[in-house]
Amino acid sequence: MEAKPRLLTILDGVTVVMLIIATGMVFFYAPVEAVMGLVQKVFYFHVAAGWVGMLSFLVAAGAGIAYLWKGNRKWDVVGMASVELGLVFAFINVVTGSIWARPIWNAWWTWDPRLTTATIMLLIYAAYLMLRSGIEDPDRRARFGAIYAILGFLSVPLTFLSARLFRGIHPVVIGSNQPGAEGQFDMTALMLQTFLFSLLTFTIIFIDLLWHRIRLGRLQDRIEQMKLELNL
């Protein structure tokens, strides 16, 4: 039984402290947005969760390529862990977005490129898990998972592109000022600091959870092996 690494314990502590600070900053440090009011506060964690959702998609595709290339089981564990986390964060992203959209756009849902893409990402993650659950052989499960993670990662940007060729009303807060976006606002310095800190916090949460999940996956593998040995 491998002991929990010291560094992971420290990272757990850092994660909790950062999440508390980030929450505090969102509510007490960042000013209330003039037009939208309190509901705008969802923005900080909404974007951060979306960013982590995409990051985990990238990690899963990277792990998929690494697995196909090297054939090392540990990359399969990384890919699986990443997809599971991505599913959670992408879901948080979509739900918080809906909470914001109801008062601002007067609808829970629109067929905006970002919304469409985020949800397709969720569906691809879900399909990935269904694919894996239907395969007994761990080697084949790993290979198919890797292939599907790569295909999904290639398809998602194209979905975004095709949905954007339709029209979009989702505000683009960072970067360009897009006319016609509903719920557009300019960030003040305090808002920007809060936003960047939220991004950092969620990235750290992601790393922490990913580490835990990879450890769990490795332990699961060990248990499988031990069971096999006992049966022999």
């Binding site: 397709i120 395969i135 198919f144 295909l151 979905t159």
Partner: peptide, 25 residues
């Protein structure tokens, strides 16, 4: 891939449609 899984033909549209969505649009 789908044919080598337990759920077989049920799985194909679930795997295929989200990937080919941009092509479809």
């Amino acid at each position: 891939m789908a044919v080598q899984t337990r759920t077989r033909d049920v799985l194909l549209p679930i795997l295929l449609f989200p990937i080919v969505l941009p092509l479809f649009i």
